[in-house]
Design a protein around this nucleic acid. Structure first.
Lengths: 219, 219
DNA sequence: TAGATTGTTAATCGATTAACAATC
DNA sequence: TAGATTGTTAATCGATTAACAATC
């Protein structure tokens, strides 16, 4: 079966398309042209058509794209029509924030368990899920067919836990720890480095200030 | 003053350089060549040299880069040597997670206040910061010279609060709400769309599974 | 001086945009 | 059929990598 590699840039745009299509559906919009969508999303129509055509022809000449159809097709591409079992490791504020995110289960992500090392947290129940100690982590992953682990623990503990997860057969790690994990090629890592995001924000603020100062000087 | 536009791709890599340099410093490493750093970071040496040269020559032929010097220079570029006053709007788990992030203040981000609409949260103290109602948001921003607002509220409330922030003269929004904010050109937005991150993870997991299934078929 | 390594130019690669024929 | 809009090819733009002269 032929399967040409889809570029990372295209994939990273799909969730945003998905979000806009969801909103269009809520607004009762049945069809939309690449041009109308491009105006809403502030991207080029060309890019939308090019992106979507990586996965086959979802549109129809002279008509545009059927919103509902496109929405479900993108869900299939992203794999959010399937079910993924997930654990959260680190039951602090960030772990709990993720556990409480309502739309989670709607997207097929089932939180099977939460883990922490803090004895004060162990035994507590968040969103109907009991917080466990990390001792029986491996067994739990195997028993519950867990594919994804959200890692919301300090960076010092992250590498060790990641190793244990990999050995237990985890397929993917959603990494919130401020470090790069080293894992085998067949284990997927998606990083959310909030500190890096904040630094990018800082850069933007400063360069905006510099720019404004410059404009002042000119006038 | 000449100031050639730095590409977004370069900026988004700077925080990662900064992180690695910080670790090298902790390890007591004094100097490093682009080649050695490239091996650690799993990027090309060429890219490192190209990236850094956007901001001037930080290295020395035959020697490499002085870790400490490069570290402080990148901090300057990112603007994290300056001080930024910040408020957190939305004192739920995510807002509290951000408030509790220890390295925050070390990077020059001073949390001046936290806000929420939930009467049960108002008055509570997190990390020495009292949670306030959003009524006096504008006044607080002006009085405390707040430049940045972290928005950790549901997407339904985000546009209205964003408008109020803009009118109060905020410079930047760190947006965790699952929506794109509409703001004037001189207001900076850095989005953290966790749901999109999770979908990218989902895609990667699925495409890895497909790939493995394919390899099975071949053998 | 010789060796190492940068800064920088040139070559390559990939991603975005433009254009238009195909077709609903 | 005529108009609209896609799918897709070609052109452009930007980012990454390679190469090497400059220089510490």
């Amino acid at each position: 079966m032929e399967r040409k590699e889809i570029s990372k840039a295209v994939i990273s745009r799909l969730p945003r398309y998905y979000r806009y299509l969801g909103e269009l559906m809520e607004d009762g919009v049945e069809r939309i042209s690449s041009n109308d969508l491009s105006i809403r999303m502030k991207v080029t129509a060309s890019q939308i058509r090019q992106d979507l055509n990586n996965f086959g022809g979802f549109g129809q000449q002279g008509y545009g794209y059927n919103v509902k159809y496109l929405y479900t097709e993108i869900a299939k591409i992203l794999g959010i029509d399937r079910q993924h079992n997930l654990v959260i490791i680190g039951a602090g504020n960030l772990g709990q924030a993720i556990a409480n995110y309502a739309n989670f289960e709607r997207r097929g992500f089932i939180i099977k368990g939460m883990f922490d090392t803090n004895p004060r947290l162990i035994g507590l129940v968040v969103r109907g899920i009991e917080i466990r100690g990390v001792e029986d982590l491996e067994q739990f992953i195997v028993d519950n067919d867990v594919q994804i682990a959200a890692l919301t623990i300090p960076k010092t503990k992250a590498p060790e836990i990641a190793d244990r997860l990999v050995k237990a057969g985890i397929k993917a790690i959603w990494n919130f720890a401020h470090t790069d994990l080293v894992v085998p090629d067949d284990v997927v890592v998606e990083n959310v480095h909030l500190s890096e995001s904040l630094m990018r924000l800082s850069y933007k603020v400063c360069s905006m200030q510099d720019q404004e100062a410059e404009n002042q000087n000119k006038s």
